[in-house]
Amino acid sequence: MALLEANDLEIRFGGVKALAGVSFRVEEGEVFGVIGPNGAGKTTLLNAISAVYKLNGGSIRFAGEDVTGLPPHRLSRLGIARTFQIVQPFKAMSVRENVAIGAMFGHARLRTRDAWLAAADAALERTGLAPKAAFMPPQLTLADRKRLEVARALAMGPRIILFDEVMAGLNHTEIERMIDLVKSLKQAGLTVVVIEHVMKAVLALCDRIMVLNFGAKLAEGVPDDVVSDPKVVEAYLGQRFAKAHAAAGGAR
């Protein structure tokens, strides 16, 4: 059974359709990639799923239930967590408090202060932020702010976690660490959706990929098929990527 199922999602801004009827399914336990050019509607898709934007059309099912129209906080307690492409830390709270908020309000079961802090500390440990638990967000580097986004989502104890470009702006080593983190989440049984421009990460992580272009689905499938699809090469990846990828004999 698909854990997350989106049918015909539509989001309009004025006359512009940022999402023009997008459907897809994410199976339990898989890493599902969403790629596409700037302005394709990837972030809008995340906002639609997490109810940050109201749908103009379409429906969403999560774990077999219709969740269309539920407010964000209800979705989060059902087990949907996300990060923000433009990081949004609570800047007047310490890193640890930021993460504890996720456990306090987004976790379906934790009830005590000790349990919230334990969940926060576990998420900090996992993301490598533990040494900076007492820092204030403005003191963090970009890479650490991205980690903070991830830690906050993890502390919610989600069933699915939606990452919006958590690798953007990170250097080589930092990207490797983030890839390892996502792999460990998958190993722990989490379902993951990654929106990402860093193709190396997409290829290393994703079981399946969906390509968005102008608010519509351009292609979907296993990574090797998708990246060699001429439509995708033309709209997004470019010839150079296709040649390099073919020369390398695929990513795996």
């Binding site: 964000p72 906080h73 923000f84 949004q88 830390p89 408090e97 908020i101 306090m104 309000f105 906050r152």
Partner: peptide, 25 residues
């Protein structure tokens, strides 16, 4: 209290507060 944390979270980032489980309204 958690209520106080919810208020400060809303003040610093209402959108993030909502998706982290706070019933903002």
């Amino acid at each position: 209290r958690p209520f106080g944390y919810a208020l400060r979270a809303i003040r610093d980032g209402e959108r993030a507060a909502g998706v982290m489980g706070i019933d903002t309204t």
